[in-house]
């Protein structure tokens, strides 16, 4: 009945994607072609991220931590690290610190790894504090 339209296979609202694109300082106008492609690739991205996160999950239950895990392990997802920090409990944090203290300076590699996690966590609380302002 209706004419086939490329936009039909999209889920995300083009108008919203356009608004987000235009919020970028260097973007003045967004033509239909780049708009279609950015929308399409964003859907590919969501599908890809969800599938990879799902591999980390158990019992058919996808949780935040499974996504954060993918983000922290894949360097091409570096742009998401600030908004998707690994969340740890206070107990885990204490264990981490205890482990770090016990290790001392035995292995540089591992201690720098845990300090990285520490800073990730810290940056998230810093961000929350900003958001509350």
């Amino acid at each position: 009945m209706s004419t086939p339209k490329a936009e039909k296979d999209l889920h995300l609202p083009l108008s919203r994607v356009k608004t987000i694109m235009k919020s970028s300082p260097d973007v003045e106008a967004v033509g239909p072609e780049p708009l279609y492609l950015v929308t399409k690739v964003t859907e590919l991205f969501v599908t890809d991220l969800a599938k990879r996160a799902f591999k980390n999950s158990k019992n058919n239950f996808l949780e935040y931590k499974h996504i954060a895990e993918v983000v922290q392990e894949d360097d091409t997802l570096d742009f998401l690290r600030e908004i998707m920090p690994r969340k740890i409990t206070v107990r885990q944090f204490k264990e981490l610190m205890a482990k770090k203290a016990a290790k001392g300076d035995l292995s540089d590699d591992e201690s720098s790894e845990s300090s990285e996690e520490y800073s990730t966590d810290e940056s998230s609380s810093g961000k929350e504090a900003n958001d509350q302002e």
Binding site: D26, L62, Y64, I67, A68, V71, F79, I83, M84
Partner: peptide, 24 residues
């Protein structure tokens, strides 16, 4: 598959940031 609320908002946020990332 069940998806936690936090996972949903996380994925939506990630998608929004991805739009800007690709745009830039």
């Amino acid at each position: 598959v069940a998806i936690s609320k936090e996972a949903r908002t996380g994925l939506a946020k990630a998608a929004s940031v991805f739009v800007l990332y690709v745009t830039s």
